[in-house]
Nucleic acid binder design. Sequence first.
DNA 1: CGGAATCCAGTGGGATACTG
DNA 2: CAGTATCCCACTGGATTCCG
Lengths: 127, 127
Amino acid sequence: MTAFDMQTRHGEVCPLDTTLKILAGKWKSIIICRLMHGEQRFTELLHTLPGCTRRMLALQLQELMTDQIIKKTVDLNVIPIKTSYQLTELGMSLISIVQAMDAWGTTYIAALQPKKSATSQLTDERI
Amino acid sequence: MTAFDMQTRHGEVCPLDTTLKILAGKWKSIIICRLMHGEQRFTELLHTLPGCTRRMLALQLQELMTDQIIKKTVDLNVIPIKTSYQLTELGMSLISIVQAMDAWGTTYIAALQPKKSATSQLTDERI
DNA sequence: CGGAATCCAGTGGGATACTG
DNA sequence: CAGTATCCCACTGGATTCCG
């Protein structure tokens, strides 16, 4: 699912839902987190995403490119080919939102912990 | 999908993804927007969500309640039964995030418009 | 290395009808 | 009024294989 068709999931054309559509993919948020610290190669990304297959990574990267959140550069001068992904200007403008959502999520989890078995251990995405 | 199981979609337990799971349902973001302005009854909500069926509304409300974003109060003293939904404290703490996401979405759409046919007209969710 | 193609399963969500 | 119960379909995402 990409946001580029400019159509929200419910009927109304709504900026909030547009933002959600951009981030809704299973690996998209974490990919953006990885790219916040600088460009990454396809395989580099893959190795930092345990459980993500090449197919899924390629799919999510494509959709993020369609939405103009990331861009890729291909270096044909080396063999084998080297491709790199990085955030666009738009993508970088998303960082503050992502950080705000992460901060709220942390507070939320903390607020719920006392009522649960408290067995889960947090390992942040290192934003 | 609810966030209450405290398990993110990709492997890592990540606050950002927890936040996304809470908002990811098709009608959840817009329901939260509706409740930002005060409590609403089931049918009131339904009528402001064109295209949403009673089943879907009930499902999304249940998940939001499980995540403790909203709560419902039932008035058994009137006939027929009157139920009302409102944001919890946690839910109200989400408002600033929702507004930030909506604001970013507006900027994003504006940034993309020049490159598209510019036929779509924005009708905001009136946050 | 960095993908694309194919196939398949799980689930999110719609249509419809029934209920306390 | 405020929901459930069934049925069904489309789409997301996983596994595997093939390619330049």
